[in-house]
Amino acid sequence: MAFAALRFSGTLARRLAAGRPERGASLYWLGQAGFLIDTGRIRLLVDPYLSDSLAEKYRHRGFSHERMMPPPIEIADLPPIDFIFCTHFHTDHMDGATLAPIAERFPAMRIVVPKASVGVAREKTGLGPDSFIGIDADETLALGMEDEVTAVRAAHEELKRDEDGHHLFLGYGFDLAGVRVFHSGDTIPFEGQRSEIEALRPDIALFPVNGRSEALRSAGIAGNFTLDEAVSVASACAIPVVLAHHYGMFAFNTIAPERIDAKATALTGPTRLLRAREGIEYRL
């Protein structure tokens, strides 16, 4: 699978308005764990956080959630979206202030969330049940004639299920007419993870790299892969390209971008590491 990272001039809104891919898929980073994926047939968002709702929520308590980077695109400038995927219920991944206005603009769009969090998603957004599709680990959902997604487990420090046995944290393996994109969701390594990822045969993996700490865990903030863990898992699963993300949004829970770049430069072997960046179209 050919891969290219292409810098574009102007805003993301202008780039998206300029045209869609005729083949393959194009990916754009939206900050934190958010991505837009476009194949020309179908356009998806994963974990978009395009508001400042967490800054308002934590204005006078806890860790500051002021954005370190502005949204790369305004909701009003988004092109038509077919599906939004949320990996779990945390607001930087399932943001009512982002999801609701997008759903208002595109009523035919559907929001795919873990079955364990359908109720939470409705509460966050105020949207009716017809707006949502619930999915659980090991389930596959057809997105169109050539496109589908398979959900897998994620361990946002823990593998958790609700009282009905549905997983709270998911990753998504997209098969978009043979272009395979894997978004792990927020996760750390866990037993069985490698075989689940290998079965999806990703061409590219979108992995968080902000790591975790006891101090944050004690404050109720679960962590993710360290940079080294993300690279190790990708290499073990023979994934050609890794986009490192989940950094640069909140000052209390990030990693210096220079560390990602240094790791990428030092890597040898078949797996290529890149830091997710604004102003870049990642093309497969």
Score class of each variant (00 low, 15 high):
Arg15Met: 04
Arg15Val: 00
Leu16Glu: 01
Ala17Ser: 09
Ala17Val: 00
Ala17Met: 01
Ala17Trp: 00
Ala18Arg: 07
Gly19His: 05
Gly19Lys: 04
Arg20His: 08
Arg20Tyr: 05
Pro21Leu: 04
Pro21Phe: 02
Glu22Met: 03
Arg23Val: 08
Gly24Asp: 04
Gly24Trp: 00
Gly24Gln: 04
Gly24Glu: 03
Ala25Gln: 01
Ser26Asn: 06
Ser26Ala: 10
Leu27Gln: 05
Leu27Gly: 05
Tyr28Thr: 00
Trp29Phe: 07
Trp29Cys: 04
Leu30Ser: 07
Leu30Arg: 04
Gly31Gln: 10
Gln32Gly: 08
Gln32Asn: 15
Gln32Ser: 11
Ala33Thr: 10
Gly34Val: 05
Phe35Arg: 09
Leu36Ser: 01
Leu36Val: 02
Leu36Arg: 02
Ile37Leu: 03
Ile37Pro: 00
Ile37Arg: 01
Ile37Gln: 01
Asp38Pro: 03
Asp38Glu: 04
Asp38Ser: 01
Gly40Met: 03
Gly40Phe: 00
Arg41Trp: 03
Arg41Lys: 13
Ile42Thr: 05
Arg43Leu: 01
Arg43Tyr: 00
Arg43Cys: 00
Arg43Glu: 00
Leu44Gly: 00
Leu44Trp: 00
Val46Arg: 03
Asp47Gln: 10
Pro48Gln: 08
Pro48Thr: 03
Tyr49Val: 03
Ser51Leu: 06
Ser51Thr: 05
Asp52Ala: 10
Asp52Thr: 11
Asp52Gly: 14
Asp52Gln: 09
Ser53Leu: 11
Leu54Pro: 06
Ala55Cys: 07
Tyr58Asn: 10
Tyr58Gln: 06
Tyr58Arg: 09
Gly62Trp: 10
Phe63Gly: 05
Phe63Ser: 11
Phe63Thr: 09
Ser64Ile: 09
Ser64Glu: 12
His65Arg: 15
His65Pro: 11
His65Met: 15
His65Phe: 15
His65Ser: 15
Arg67Glu: 14
Met69Glu: 11
Pro70Val: 11
Pro71Tyr: 06
Pro71Arg: 14
Pro71Asp: 14
Pro72Val: 15
Pro72Ser: 13
Pro72Cys: 15
Ile75His: 13
Ala76Asp: 13
Ala76Asn: 11
Ala76Met: 10
Asp77Ile: 09
Asp77Ala: 15
Leu78His: 02
Leu78Pro: 05
Pro79Asp: 10
Pro80Asp: 08
Ile81Pro: 01
Ile81Ala: 02
Ile81Val: 09
Asp82Arg: 03
Phe83Asn: 08
Phe85Thr: 03
Cys86Gly: 05
Thr87Ser: 13
Thr87Lys: 06
His88Met: 12
His90Phe: 11
His90Asn: 14
His90Tyr: 12
Thr91Met: 14
Asp92Cys: 13
His93Pro: 02
Asp95Tyr: 12
Asp95Cys: 14
Gly96Glu: 14
Gly96Tyr: 14
Gly96Ala: 13
Thr98Gly: 09
Thr98Ala: 08
Thr98Asn: 11
Pro101Gly: 07
Pro101Cys: 07
Pro101Asn: 10
Ile102Leu: 11
Ala103Thr: 06
Ala103Arg: 09
Ala103Trp: 07
Glu104Asp: 13
Glu104Tyr: 10
Arg105Ser: 04
Phe106Asp: 04
Phe106Thr: 04
Pro107Val: 02
Pro107Gln: 10
Ala108Phe: 08
Ala108Gly: 15
Met109Thr: 03
Met109His: 07
Val112Trp: 06
Val112Ser: 08
Val113Met: 10
Val113Glu: 09
Pro114Tyr: 15
Lys115Leu: 12
Lys115Val: 07
Ala116Gln: 13
Ser117Pro: 07
Ser117Asn: 15
Val118His: 08
Val118Ile: 14
